[in-house]
Design a protein around this nucleic acid. Structure first.
Lengths: 153, 153
DNA sequence: GTAAAAATCTATTATTTCTATAGACATAAA
DNA sequence: TTTATGTCTATAGAAATAATAGATTTTTAC
């Protein structure tokens, strides 16, 4: 289950993707528009910037913008930055590996060997989806509803 | 990331799968053999029993046994019992649905529409893997190592 | 060069979830 | 009727998540 932090990040990124290029968005505005606690959002945006997904400018006229086009920002990269990892067990993590206290021998641990499949499946789907997909799907759903409404009138 | 509770459950189930049919295992023995805090394990086994994966008998000669053959116990069912759910957002959960406070309209929420794909991928892999797979893979890995050792002598 | 606008940093608190423990209770077998 | 066992209720401790506060630095514009 994704944490609130990650959901906030996704909402913020979707918002930023919808603003014209060259127009930085203020933390305060983003917080107000998306109903995210401002100080918490500060921390989230900073993480995303350090993770390479956002650019920021300090001072008057500053704010946040995407560092990449939306179709180059994968959901996987977002989740990895905010949740620390994707792997179902830490002994499978590449970015955050730790030996599992619970098993004697990693090489023959059935849990690990099986969770490796889960890890691959999850990584594949998360890395194949992008911010652009999120926006497209939302728009497509809105269009569909709009058409149904038009017909029914 | 799976909680310790779920890892403990997997270890316990693997252990139970390895004991002869008709021989219930005591909580105390399981706790000792697998290095799981006894009281915590009690709670876990009870959850698994209520979830239909284990059978128990009270009193002398009692203990726990699997309620199903290992190839009928999916990893998905285990995770659902211990973690409550698999869905990445609660508004996609079938067993534990809750409306998400963060979105105005579920039908057009880009996060939800995208996470639906993740949910399907995750469910598919978790429901395709079973306790028997865990055991087989562990055995296969042990065999492989054994053979390598034999050759090298 | 000074004032205002903005992000950034450090620290702390509050809340929730996860992990673990204790003790009383119920059930079944010998 | 005693002993062995799982079951239940309650609670405590630890860790992670969510949120807040205030001081600091950077940049622009006047």
């Amino acid at each position: 289950m994704l944490s609130k932090k990650t959901i906030y990040a996704l909402k913020a990124l979707i918002h930023l993707a919808g603003t014209p290029i060259g127009h930085p968005v203020l933390i305060a505005d983003l917080a107000k528009d998306e109903n995210i606690p401002k100080k918490f959002l500060e921390f989230i945006l900073l993480s995303l910037r350090k993770g390479g997904l956002l650019q920021s400018r300090v001072g008057k006229g500053g704010g946040y913008t995407l560092a990449l086009p939306p179709n180059k920002i994968t959901i996987g990269s977002i989740v990895r930055i905010l949740e620390g990892d994707i792997a179902p067990v830490q002994c499978l993590s590449t970015t955050n590996y730790a030996r599992c206290e619970e098993c004697q021998d990693e090489a023959t641990c059935g849990i690990r060997l099986t969770m490796a499949d889960v890890n691959v499946a999850l990584s594949n789907v998360l890395d194949s989806l992008t911010l652009a997909d999120m926006i497209e799907r939302s728009a497509a759903a809105r269009n569909k509803i709009q058409n149904v409404v038009d017909y029914s009138i």
